[in-house]
Design a protein around this nucleic acid. Structure first.
Length: 245
DNA sequence: CGCCAGGTGGGAT
DNA sequence: ATCCCACATGGC
């Protein structure tokens, strides 16, 4: 048991158990941050309220945030979002009418601004053409700059679809607890979570996946950092890394 | 100062 | 398949 197990062996009962432990400890996280007042106020978390985003404007803001936060702290992404809202351009139709220079300057704080300018523009075109339908994952993935995590974040936190979002935090935590390889395929991790909650109704899965991903982030920031703080970790009793790593 | 943050695409091997 | 790099800001 010294070499990493396969992600195929990840036990689904422990996936469910883990959720219960984390939720009991931390409760509702309320991802994704959205400004509840439709003005220029800062986006905030809304723990326990799964009826967000409530309209197309908030939906577009969630999607925009998913793109702007790529490999960037939410703090930086939120500055860019605030710039867009203050300039009244947080709207797909208006966004695509901006010059590349103007748009990239507004999202500058989020980093990679030339790249993200292009991604936002392409996504806004897609958003307009897609109407009110829930986008297909493969269609999102076909867009430049929309990878698996961003696509799933948009589907889960934007369109309230029951899909699980895997990010580097999730992989780090699971790889330590279960002695799994960090480099396992995204879709393998994802399917395991879908398997674990296969029997829950769609609406339940959506709110559960919403909380679960947020709880992983919380736990990764609290304890399971790059340099983990194992002594005070609430999962230390069941963690491979803590006990045998 | 160096490291890091709610990734992704593209090119070389 | 798997590694490596560019992309870039600002907090800590």
């Amino acid at each position: 048991m010294s070499s990493p197990e396969s992600v195929y062996d990840l036990p689904i009962d422990k996936i469910r158990y883990l959720y219960n432990v984390l939720f009991k400890e931390h409760g509702h996280q309320g991802w994704w941050p959205v400004s509840l007042n439709s003005d220029n106020s800062k986006a905030e978390y809304h723990p326990g309220d799964y009826d967000i985003p409530k309209n197309s404007f908030q939906l577009f803001e969630v999607c925009t945030g998913a793109i702007l936060t790529q490999n960037t702290s939410w703090k930086q992404a939120s500055k860019a979002i605030l710039n867009l809202k203050k300039e009244r351009v947080m709207d797909p139709g208006i966004l695509i009418s901006l010059t590349p220079e103007r748009l990239s300057s507004l999202i500058k704080p989020s980093g990679f601004f030339n790249r993200k300018e292009k991604i936002l523009r392409i996504f806004a075109e897609f958003f307009l053409g897609n109407g009110k339908a829930i986008p297909k994952r493969e269609d999102l993935l076909s867009l430049f700059g929309i990878g698996k995590e961003t696509a799933d974040s948009i589907l889960l936190y934007g369109y309230k679809s029951p899909v699980f979002v895997i990010d580097s935090y999730t992989k780090r935590i699971l790889s330590r607890i279960f002695n799994l390889s960090l480099s396992a395929e995204y879709d393998l991790w994802r399917e395991k979570f879908h398997d674990a909650f296969r029997r829950e109704p769609g609406r339940v899965k959506t709110s559960l996946f919403n909380e679960y991903h947020a709880l992983f982030v919380r736990h990764a920031k609290n304890s399971c950092r790059k340099n983990p703080v194992c002594e005070s970790c609430i999962l230390k009793e069941i963690c491979y890394h803590r006990n045998y790593g």
